[in-house]
Design a protein around this nucleic acid. Structure first.
Length: 225
DNA sequence: CCAGACGTTGTT
DNA sequence: GTCTGG
DNA sequence: CCAGACGTTGTT
DNA sequence: GTCTGG
């Protein structure tokens, strides 16, 4: 699962070289986050009916459909069978910029938080779905998203953890966003990211508290509990 | 036929 | 959006 | 994901 | 233990 992550890059012009032209919404404002948590506002890349450019806007983490409670993750394997997610697969795919995420190793008590990131510290994109819902009373439009998870790669299994976010690379990211990509093709892009490209290390349990959102969240820590 | 319900993930 | 219930 | 709260009645 | 909140 992916229930906490970091977004410290504020410049996403690197995506130009990925073939993704990003345009920020007028109201887009964001500064580095080291401990992004569910229910908070996070940057999301999405497309509308037409292809490029891709928009960058703030969405609330936790997909809130018209008739269900919020979900922060969606399993790639069963996406097409879930009533909540299936309608969103064709026109509501999105990508969530990140540069690392946290997982708490299972089995140990207390659970030990790990930070997982690319070996070269490069930013990456997680696959997601988004939706839009009008508040029944205020009429305000609430935009929410969920992060798609897939099977763990070897790096994640060592933590140990069974799931990881579906990360898309340079070759597949723009296909996921492209409205002309069919549902079956889009689903085929959701695979575990190669473990050899990634790295993980222990971090301080201070990250457990979402209020702790500072650069030291991602620093390596000794096992001392 | 329409009305109304349905609805997630991951962990122990 | 789709399935179930009447 | 973890942290933190979680509780009643009647009366003003 | 379970639900809510961020």
């Amino acid at each position: 699962m992916c229930g906490r992550y970091s977004v410290t890059h504020e410049d996403w012009s690197i995506l130009d070289s990925w073939g993704i032209e990003v345009v920020r919404e007028d109201s887009f404002a964001f500064s580095a986050r080291y401990n992004m948590a569910p229910t908070q506002q996070a940057p999301v890349l999405y497309t509308t009916a037409l292809k490029s450019p891709v928009s960058l806007g703030l969405f609330t983490w936790g997909l809130l459909p018209d008739t269900a409670y919020a979900t922060i993750n969606a399993r790639a394997e069963t996406l097409a069978q879930r009533p909540t997610f299936r309608p969103l697969l064709r026109n509501h795919r999105c990508l969530i910029p990140a540069d690392g995420f946290y997982e708490w190793g299972k089995g140990r008590s207390p659970k030990v938080p790990h930070y997982i990131h690319m070996q070269n510290s490069a930013p990456f994109l997680m696959a997601g779905l988004h939706t839009r819902r009008t508040h029944p009373k205020t009429g305000a439009i609430l935009r929410t998203f969920t992060i798609i998870t897939t099977a763990a790669n070897e790096l994640m299994k060592n933590i140990p953890h069974d799931r990881m976010p579906a990360i898309l690379d340079q070759a597949t990211a723009r296909h996921w966003l492209d409205p002309s990509t069919g549902v079956a093709d889009a689903l085929s892009l959701l695979q575990p990211y190669p473990a050899q490209m990634m790295q993980a290390h222990l971090v301080s349990a201070a990250v457990n508290n979402w209020r702790h959102d500072t650069p030291d969240c991602i620093l390596p820590a000794e096992r001392n509990t």
